[in-house]
Nucleic acid binder design. Sequence first.
DNA 1: GTCTATATCTCGATAGAC
DNA 2: GTCTATCGAGATATAGAC
Lengths: 202, 202
Amino acid sequence: MSASERKRAAITEAAIGEFVQRGYAGASVDAIAARARVSKPTVYSHFGNKERLFLTVIGGYLREGYTDLGPLADRIAGAPDLRAALIDFLGTWVEVVLREDSMTLRRLVIGEVDRFPQLGQVWAQVNGAGDEALVHALTGLHQRGVLEVTSPRSAVRQLTAMTVGAAQLIRTFRPAYEFAEGELEELVSSGVDVFLTAYARR
Amino acid sequence: MSASERKRAAITEAAIGEFVQRGYAGASVDAIAARARVSKPTVYSHFGNKERLFLTVIGGYLREGYTDLGPLADRIAGAPDLRAALIDFLGTWVEVVLREDSMTLRRLVIGEVDRFPQLGQVWAQVNGAGDEALVHALTGLHQRGVLEVTSPRSAVRQLTAMTVGAAQLIRTFRPAYEFAEGELEELVSSGVDVFLTAYARR
DNA sequence: GTCTATATCTCGATAGAC
DNA sequence: GTCTATCGAGATATAGAC
């Protein structure tokens, strides 16, 4: 890796830290340069201006920070205990999504989405991948007659809304909220139960 | 209303506009003063500093912008057609919450919640009132044996997550997303159906 | 490519007159 | 209470040397 590439990486890392911590307008290129231990013109020669720096760096971070839940989802369709498999899958999803750095990044993107709509698109795209894995699993379960899911996409949206979405909502507005012992598990499992009852083969 | 009170009101309105449009760090006291047609020292004499201006003005706006869904919710328990009543109630809720000014305010609060946690508390409190109305209705339905809802609070969270939450999530990251003809109605009614199937008296 | 140094501007906040 | 005028700090961005 060349010296220039190293500096670019250092700027990227520093910029993510500053933007996430202070937001777009609150972060300063001065502080980013200092944190990356480069001069300000180096930042500008690499990224042009503050807006492009923001979009490039946060957009890339969004894509790279994505956790592939596909392999986990593939185990759902053939699991001996469907309920347990769903709880396991959604429990992992919730855990990933509730991590503090996931949440602060999420808040940053939401807060800047009116000024940087492209970021929202990236988020929707990255997030949609998780849904896709579940849609695939549910389609299989329907074909095998385990469940009756005529609209997998709608069903997935409902299942994730009750579990991942509900948990995320709490921490979105209350970053310091501490879930009680077993509260998250209860939230996820009760959501799965509602889902399974509603979409059971009749 | 005294001249001073009029100015305070003008500052409040101008500040809301600037903060919502540009965020906390992006908004300037200069611009707020200009928009309110007062001088900067007038702003400071009324609100002390920028942080207090932000908290006072946005906090107040949150509380005042709250739509009381209680009366609508009271009609649910005694409705002849429970499904229709729920769809009506949640449809109204979704409509209120998807309005562009609700959404931009929501994005502002989320984006600033790490720096102003108190705002998140206010939001949670105001929003919780809507839930409370539904909890009350469901408790009544359970006692009368119409539904079997052992944990109304959990059930309400699931119902709202599938309907209000799901719709809101889409527009949170994609402000310009246009719902197709009937898409929202389908989203709400399918959520209500899942809920009713899962919590039907067995 | 990367630096030092700087141009230019706008920020939050205030002193002092009225 | 409200204004004009201004302070000092810190913002984005760049010129020019190496």
